[in-house]
Design a protein around this nucleic acid. Sequence first.
DNA 1: TTGAAAGCGATACCAT
DNA 2: ATGGTATCGCTTTCAA
Lengths: 345, 345
Amino acid sequence: MVQIPTTPAPPTPPAPRPVPTSADVARLAGVSRATVSYVLNNTSAVRISEPTRQRVHDAARELGYVPHAAARSLRAGHSRMVLMPAPAVAAGPLYSQFVHDLQQALSQIGYTVVQYGASGMHGQEAVRSWAELRPVAVLVPGNGISAEGVAVLKRSGAKAVVVLAAEHVPGAHTLILDHADVGRLAARHLHERGRRRIGVVVPVERGMDMFSGPRLAGVREELAGTGAEVVALPMAHTEESAAELAARWPELGLDAVFGYNDEYALPLARALQDRGVDIPGDVAVVGADDLLIARLARPRLTSVAIRLPAGPALADLVDRAVHRPGTEAEHPGAIQVALVVRESS
Amino acid sequence: MVQIPTTPAPPTPPAPRPVPTSADVARLAGVSRATVSYVLNNTSAVRISEPTRQRVHDAARELGYVPHAAARSLRAGHSRMVLMPAPAVAAGPLYSQFVHDLQQALSQIGYTVVQYGASGMHGQEAVRSWAELRPVAVLVPGNGISAEGVAVLKRSGAKAVVVLAAEHVPGAHTLILDHADVGRLAARHLHERGRRRIGVVVPVERGMDMFSGPRLAGVREELAGTGAEVVALPMAHTEESAAELAARWPELGLDAVFGYNDEYALPLARALQDRGVDIPGDVAVVGADDLLIARLARPRLTSVAIRLPAGPALADLVDRAVHRPGTEAEHPGAIQVALVVRESS
DNA sequence: TTGAAAGCGATACCAT
DNA sequence: ATGGTATCGCTTTCAA
């Protein structure tokens, strides 16, 4: 038998029938692509006869036609996409709720929220990958963007850049949230209650240092010069890690602890109680984020509440910024941070 | 002065300098668009002289050029985007961690995960809006998609559709997770412990019924014909709602409660204890999701653990499906659901 | 080594 | 009432 060498007999894989385009619909309906576009978009500026409409709709349904968003927005020159880079750390309850509310609110007014998970990129590289998607607005949670980054986004067509950061970022609508304030508030409170050797939980989970760093720094800053001592306490978000830390308590000799977070403070408080430490008698405990679990603990946990902006308000800010690209430096104001004193301190 | 009538003097709005394109870069560098593409993509099939490279790079930097992802993937005919519709409800800790891990794992192997927040759409309408983005794979958490939906996605170019649902969805890789099983497991356990009047917390938050319905049904089903009674207990995720429910306890006369979730079970357990109810003496409590807080409660909370697939494993499944579009009906198997007995029951 | 040009899919102007 | 066609930004043959 003779093998034909030139044509290696293409194995003809399952023949993945190509994705239908508007041209296919037009062909099947016996009309032009323009007509297809008119019909499917209900263009009011042009009248299409009812029979034609029907034929187009039938053809589209038969082929299972779905328009191509990229092609559409390429042609249109804009999109209604609001991009939020997904955080490097698994979202806590506070942030999950925040994103969810914002998403709802933005959907209401016609935007599409996209959480973009591009882990492993940093700084300008990350910013550029966001800009490639040409979002109409970008909402950055955390200090991951600089003034230059904002400029890149703006030049790429973003009408609004909203940043949640400790300091104002030029060109962006900055929601000021300085995690050092959280630490300061907790430290001041503990100091006022007469505590002088204060531990600060520092999560060992990587990516968390973005928040834990400033919080610890805030505590240190607040207590500088008061004679009070500050001890950093590395801890993982597990029962075991909390138990180990509690086991070392006698040698640490602390009379208070800022637990970074309600989610870290609580396991530690539990572990301490299990070893016979009285809260707040022997050790005062303060958490943060004011989660529901803080209220469920016994004693109820004192916590630093962070009042993130409500979804509709933030959505409205984005919407206004999109319509008035001029108002760049509008300061939406600082985020409220407040101590909620309960029984643990 | 003579006005040229054909040009109606475009009002020239604030002149938002148009977004620079590769053509602009080419112009500034004095080369063709092709050369720009070669240089910026480091095309190996073609050699560009070092001086030219430099000029192109300089021009790109000067203009702040960022490539247009939509145009790129339109031309390429494919993308590496894995789309996950954002759930209608704020994500709990279990799901947040799951998404985060999966995102990390997919990023490792070159995919981009996008959580798409298109609230307010349902069924086929929602599916079509996902298909418009032409993702290479779609991962649907929950029963929000049918066999027809999968077909639409596949026809739109999706190589893999992974579904987390109670029943196998034809055409998709289905990870079977029947929330009724969660209810069944809890119910069986409580019945074995001799409980006969069993309450089931049903979250009032909207969107939650997607999971609470099956869980309640599972409890009912498991106890059908045993003579045990089942009482649905509407409750919000707040301390107050839990307290109200606890206040009605005497008239309810229940000896056990399945709390839907650790996050609902715990506030209720607390409220009951506050009213002098002994756990598990008077009332047995079972939660679900096996969160850390279940272990922190006193007594420690019995919980139904749901072992979601690990990020890397699932990422690998997606990757294989993308490369072998044929293996459509591969069953990744059911998700493990297991009771973790602690002290509350 | 570089450039001209075709085309990806959809839309909107201008004719017919 | 429809159709032809230029265009959006980019990649990639094919020629030069």
